[in-house]
Amino acid sequence: MPKLKQKGCWMVRVTATTPILEIRDLTFGFGGNLVTDHVSMSVDRGEFVSIIGPNGAGKTTFFNVVTGVYQPSGGTITYRGKDITGINAAQRARAGIARSFQLANLFPTLSVLEHARLAAQAQGSRRYGLLRPYTAYRRYLDRAQSALELVGLGARVHGPAGALSHGDKRKLELAMVIAADPEILLLDEPTSGVSAEDVPAMVALIRKIRQVEGKTVMMVEHKMSVVLDLSDRIAVLHGGKLLAIDLPEKIQQNETVQAAYLGQDSI
């Protein structure tokens, strides 16, 4: 893959670019079980890192700790050179870390458009506006509309989100992340539940977000074809520990990884 060679991570490290996200010894647990066990990784600006691992490996929990849903019991998260370990989830979202959810996590009776509009509005300075109607802020509406058109929901923006099919809810999750216009996108299984014929379009869209808009992406995904297609590097979690993080071809050859994960089901 020439694209990878060009953006090979060792190149970036040699030129001493500060990573956009630097995670050190991140640790979190539920009542005695470490679900995130001293995980360290650093992600460069514009990089695409996929996180794979068997069910229960702690992938979503890792996202939850990075986005501030859970407060880690140890370790630090440094984002654009600043320690963000102590700030809350809302502040992290506004700083440019947006995530999508693996399970539809929506506002069931609010319209599809309103979901993306709320995502855009949260980033704006007028999120505490009380005296003017929300429709007075066209930029949020416009950004929401174009994000929905990007994911292919442009024609059904007015219905309630609760009435969408499972696959369309997944697209809406992605549209909300796009509307927030973040620096880093954390996508939690973006293609799960999406019908097979829609997956290539989703993959193309994620690639576009990353290449055209230069976003950094971290993605949890089970479909290995999607992971290999998109990733610069792949991180493998197992039992809360980071087994390896490396170029896709190296990960495929890694024996520890094969034993822990890839050996279980064919790719």
Partner: peptide, 26 residues
């Protein structure tokens, strides 16, 4: 006026799913 303002829309988002409104940055 209040319920149709940006704040009013966030109220409704909180009613529907408070945790998600937090994750959006509110």
């Amino acid at each position: 006026v209040f319920v149709h303002s940006p704040v009013g829309r966030v109220w409704q988002a909180i009613r529907e799913n408070e945790q998600r409104s937090l994750m959006l940055g509110y």
